[in-house]
């Protein structure tokens, strides 16, 4: 455990030193402030909490932003150390290879935690104090932050997989962007495109549900829109998700799998690798 902390703390210190954490907090915080200002506008006559609106808009933005931040953190993590030569020295220390991966993972998770909870959390606290807005629906907001962290860890794990598979940092950077496009943009585009062309011939509701669920980003989206009554009513999808057989625990498990499987694959390749 000591080893893991030593390795994790090094990553966190790096993140603080190169202002990475600061930049992420400012980015996420500004977004949260902007969206909560926008969110307070349309609450008008229908009794919807401002926070619920913010959860909807913030989670639909996070689905693009959090994977990007996580991939930027992780794509360089292994290939960078190989390329600079620091990995070779590290592995002559009494550290096991899984500890190197898990130590980095823990460190990057802490960085992401700090960025999300200070950025999103701090912003909303500030707004509540300044505007005297209600705190109704705070649970949904906290759940949104926690699931954002989970979404981030999916892409940290995927970033490591890229980082161990390629030989050069430039290739890793390119592959990370490709990964982001594929998961965040292309998958949905292709899925909906196929749905339009297919017109319900092959892709029935069941298959469609499965195809939505296996994508970590879609799982994150649906999770945040359906987990809390207030949010799902404001989003206009109340009841739809549960009717389709998408419950929170399935979506959470899917996202967990997207963390565990790439991590295991990274570990497997790393164990085999000759330095």
């Amino acid at each position: 455990m000591n080893m893991l902390w030593t390795l994790a703390l090094k990553e966190v210190k790096d993140g603080l030193r190169n202002r990475w954490i600061a930049a992420a907090i400012i980015l996420l915080g500004t977004l949260a402030v902007a969206l909560s200002l926008l969110g307070s506008a349309p609450t008008g006559s229908v009794r919807v909490s401002e926070l619920d609106i913010t959860v909807i808009s913030l989670s639909s933005l996070s689905v693009y932003l959090i994977p990007l931040i996580a991939l930027m953190l992780s794509f360089d993590a292994l290939v960078g150390e190989f390329e600079r030569g620091t990995m070779m020295l590290l592995l002559t220390y009494p550290v096991e290879r899984w500890q190197v991966i898990m130590g980095k993972f823990l460190g990057h998770l802490i960085i992401l935690f700090i960025a999300i909870f200070t950025g999103y959390g701090g912003a909303i606290l500030l707004m509540t104090v300044l505007t005297g807005g209600g705190t109704e629906g705070w649970q949904a907001y906290v759940a949104m932050m926690a699931s954002s962290l989970l979404l981030g860890s999916v892409f940290i794990a995927l970033g490591y997989l890229v980082s161990i598979l390629v030989r050069e940092r430039a290739t890793a950077a390119g592959s990370a962007i490709g990964l982001w496009l594929a998961f965040v943009v292309l998958y949905d585009l292709i899925l909906f495109g196929a749905l339009l062309i297919d017109e319900g011939q092959i892709i029935g509701q069941k298959l469609f549900t499965i195809l939505m669920l296996i994508s970590p980003t879609d799982s994150y989206r649906i999770l945040n829109l359906s987990m809390f009554e207030g949010v799902s009513q404001a989003a206009g999808i109340a009841g739809i998700a549960s009717e389709a057989g998408m419950n929170s625990s399935i979506m959470l498990s899917v996202m967990m799998l997207w963390v565990v499987v790439p991590l295991m694959m990274t570990l497997y390749v790393f164990q085999k690798r000759e330095i």
Binding site: D14, R17, G85, T86, L89, P94
Partner: peptide, 20 residues
């Protein structure tokens, strides 16, 4: 792994974490 405690290594053209 544990006995690497008793081991010291200086690689050829050693590289460190530059920012530290």
């Amino acid at each position: 792994v544990a006995q690497r405690l008793a081991l010291g290594y200086l690689p050829e053209s050693v590289a460190f974490y530059e920012a530290m």
